[in-house]
C-alpha cells in the first residue's frame, strides 16, 4: 500500500469504478434509465393527452397501483394467490417430471413409452384446454394448479433426463469395472452429473409456472382473483395504471423465482461447474 497522502481515496474509487460489479450495475442501470426515458417520451410527447391512458407515465402507475391503499391490497392479495398457485404447480411439476425422468433414464422401454407423451403435453395448446379443465375440475385453486403443472412440466423432464444420460462414459466404465449397483450408479454418478441441467430445467420451469398460474387465472375468470383475473378486469375497466401495476407485479414474481433458483444453483453446483458461477 502506498502511504502517500493524496491519491489513496481516488485510487480506491478508481478500483471500484473499474471493477466488474460496478460496470455490470452501471450497464443494467443505463438500460433501465433509457427504458424509463423512452416510457416518459411515449407518455408525454408521442401520444396526445386524451389517449394518455394507453401508456400512463411511470409515476402515476406507481401512485395508483402501489401507493393507493385499495388497489395495493388487491394487487398484493392477487400476488399471494398467484404465487401460491405457481409454487404448488412448480413443486408438483418438479416431483412428477423428476420421477418420470429418473424412470426413463433407468429403463429404455420407459423412455420409449412415455417420452412421446411428454412431448405431446408440451405441444398441446393449453389455452384450448383451459375451459375443459374448468369443466372437469372446477374453477378454483386445483384447476389453476393443473394448468400450471402442464405448462411447467416439460422442461423439467427433458433437462433432467438429458442430464442423467450425459454422465461421463469413462466414469461409467469405472463403475462398471467395480460392479457398482444400479442404485450406486444413479446416486454417485448420474444424479450429480445431472445437477447442472436439472437446475437449468428448474429455472425455465419456475418462470413458466408463474406464466401458467397467471394464464389459468386469466382464463378461468372465477374464484379468488389472482393477478390473472386482476389483469383482465383492469383491462375491461380501462384502469391502465393498475393494469401496468399488475404487469409489473407479475414480472417481479417471475424474476424473483428465477433469481432464487439461480442462487440455489450457484450454491449447490457453483464450486465445480462453470455454468453456475458465470451468470445470474
Amino acid at each position: 500500500m502506498s502511504s502517500k497522502s493524496s491519491p489513496e481515496w481516488s485510487k480506491r474509487l478508481l478500483a471500484v469504478v473499474t471493477g466488474e460489479k460496478f460496470i455490470r450495475l452501471l450497464a443494467i442501470s443505463l438500460v433501465f434509465a433509457a427504458f424509463v426515458g423512452l416510457w416518459y417520451l411515449v407518455s408525454y410527447v408521442i401520444i396526445e393527452e386524451q389517449r394518455r391512458f394507453i401508456m400512463p407515465p411511470l409515476h402515476s402507475v406507481i401512485n395508483e397501483a402501489f401507493v393507493d391503499g385499495g388497489a395495493r391490497s388487491d394487487l398484493i392479495n392477487g400476488l399471494l394467490i398467484t404465487t401460491r398457485v405457481a409454487l404448488t404447480g412448480l413443486a408438483i411439476a418438479v416431483f412428477l417430471g423428476g420421477l418420470f425422468a429418473v424412470l426413463m433414464s433407468q429403463a429404455r422401454w420407459m423412455e420409449w413409452s412415455f417420452y412421446p407423451y411428454a412431448v405431446l403435453i408440451q405441444t398441446l395448446p393449453i389455452l384450448a384446454l383451459v375451459p375443459l379443465i374448468g369443466f372437469w375440475f372446477g374453477f378454483n385453486f386445483q384447476s389453476r394448479v393443473i394448468v400450471c403443472v402442464m405448462i411447467s412440466l416439460f422442461p423439467i423432464i427433458t433437462n433432467t433426463l438429458f442430464g442423467l444420460k450425459s454422465a461421463d462414459r469413462g466414469l461409467h466404465d469405472v463403475l462398471t469395472l467395480r460392479r457398482a449397483s444400479r442404485w450406486q450408479r444413479f446416486a454417485k454418478l448420474q444424479l450429480p452429473s445431472a445437477a447442472p441441467s436439472i437446475f437449468v430445467g428448474l429455472r425455465i420451469s419456475a418462470g413458466l409456472s408463474v406464466i401458467g398460474a397467471i394464464v389459468g387465472d386469466f382464463f378461468f375468470r372465477q374464484g379468488k382473483p389472482g393477478l390473472g383475473i386482476l389483469l383482465d378486469s383492469y383491462r375491461a375497466t380501462l384502469q391502465s395504471e393498475l393494469l401496468f401495476g399488475a404487469v409489473i407485479m407479475s414480472s417481479a414474481l417471475g424474476l424473483t423465482v428465477f433469481l432464487i433458483f439461480g442462487w440455489l444453483s450457484n450454491l449447490v453446483i457453483g464450486s465445480w461447474h462453470e455454468s453456475a458461477s458465470s451468470d445470474s
Binding site: 466414469l171 469405472v174 463403475l175 469395472l177 450406486q184 454417485k188 454418478l189 450429480p192
Partner: peptide
C-alpha cells in the same frame, strides 16, 4: 481385482481429491 487408469483421469468434478480417491472403496 483389476486397477484401471484411462487416458482421461475420469474424476468426478464435484468430488474433492480424497472423495474421488475413496470412490471405489465406497462402492465396496
Amino acid at each position: 481385482n483389476i486397477g484401471c487408469v484411462f487416458q482421461d483421469s475420469t474424476l468426478m468434478p464435484w468430488r474433492t481429491v480424497e472423495r474421488n480417491v475413496g470412490l471405489l472403496n465406497e462402492l465396496e
